[in-house]
Amino acid sequence: MAAAGATPGAHGAAPYRRRVAQGPLARTVLIGLAGIVAVLFLLLPVIVIFVEALSLGVGAYVEAVIEPSTLHAVWLTLLTALVVVPVNVVFGIAAAWCITRFEFKGKKLLITLIEIPFSVSPIVAGISYLFFYGSQGLLGPVLAAYDIRIMFSVPAIMLASMFVTSPFVARELIATMQVQGNEYEEAALSLGASGFKTFLKVTLPNMKWGLLYGALLCNARVMGEFGAVSVVSGSIRGQTNTLPLQIELLFNDYSAVGAFAAASLLTLLAVFSLLAKAWLERRR
């Protein structure tokens, strides 16, 4: 900006614009700035995770990773994603289908409702679940009468994760399906295909990419969720401690290598998600 600003108007509008975009100096400065920001705020912190995790050597790192409660946390985190992502995929398809293919009263309201978990802090979600399903909560006495315990168990973690991540697939699909419109479905229906067949053969293939993308985002968010899960998990080691909770526990306990080793696992899971996304985009 500053480089181009020296001679504004001297060459008219077009060269001015070209100089901002293509001038070698401006380009170097802009790319350099973006690079520095990326390195300082994104790359280095991630590298630090691995440096710290390996600070006492590979042996200590492996020992920290195969520590039973850390391994269990990895397993629980994966299990949660395995349950939550499919549920949110089904919910997302249903919601997007309903919103983009039908006209009804309160549609705007429904869209707003779907987006609530985006704007509500996860800890609020956790606490509201506690006040609903907890012993002293709204459903507490009913659940206690049947000896059903939801809070502080694996189902609680899945429920809270589901709430926090419920908009991801739906949002992605609504955008995709709104762009595509109804024409293909209408054509299929008018040619005599049943509703279900139309969905399978027309709607689903069209939304494929949006669906995969939404599921991947949802997956990344589920594995990293801390606030809501922290409230409802009870943090029982080896039972209800997810990877993010395990990281906090180890960090609070001055086990730097343990905390960073667990953090490196979570980072690797996230990187794996991103690689999967990149791979999918290339195939597209």
């Binding site: 907890g134 809070m151 502080f152 009870g234 080691r237 039972q239 306990d253």
Partner: peptide
């Protein structure tokens, strides 16, 4: 012996809400 670690005010709240 299973263990749960956390700030004790939060832990107490969890027990009141049904942590066994």
């Amino acid at each position: 012996v299973n263990q749960s670690f956390g700030g004790t005010s939060k832990q107490a709240r969890s027990i009141l809400e049904g942590l066994q």
